[in-house]
């Protein structure tokens, strides 16, 4: 894996520049939005898991859609992509494939969480400097 690939992979997890730009360069606002996301997203993932257990395709589609929208806004493209796949498959009613996608979703969220927490800390340090 080249460093360039690694860079791209990092950007796919969390594109900080795009996110901060979306918040008009306001780091305080960006941190607040990231914090709210970190508070809300575990709930969204829980709803996805519950919908899968209940074989509720409408709820599954809605909660995957919500997570995808949130991830898009936060410039978390890998997480958005996997949430988007679950949303699309939910419309076909195939719960088995979606169940198999769940670990991947959780992995992507873990990586996004690390990146966002890192962003929250380092962007504050930058301000202090």
């Amino acid at each position: 894996m080249t460093s360039r690939d690694q860079g791209q992979e990092t950007i796919d997890i969390f594109d900080m520049d795009k996110f901060v730009h979306r918040n008009l360069g306001d780091l305080d606002l960006s941190r607040d939005v990231a914090t709210i996301f970190l508070d809300s997203a575990p709930e969204y993932i829980k709803s996805i898991r519950n919908a899968l257990d209940a074989f509720d395709s409408v709820a599954l589609r809605q909660s995957a859609h919500k997570l995808k929208g949130a991830a898009d806004n936060l410039a978390l493209s890998s997480l958005s992509k996997i949430a988007g796949r679950i949303e699309t498959i939910a419309q076909t009613g195939d719960f088995e494939i979606n169940r198999q996608l769940l670990p991947e979703l959780e992995l992507q969220f873990d990586q996004a969480e690390i990146a966002l927490k890192n962003f929250i800390v380092t962007s504050q340090e930058k301000v202090r400097l």
Partner: peptide
């Protein structure tokens, strides 16, 4: 908007 972070972001931008 039901997604809390998107709602907060939108609200903050419009307020700005």
């Amino acid at each position: 908007e039901d997604d809390a972070p998107s709602r907060f972001m939108l609200q903050s931008l419009l307020t700005k």
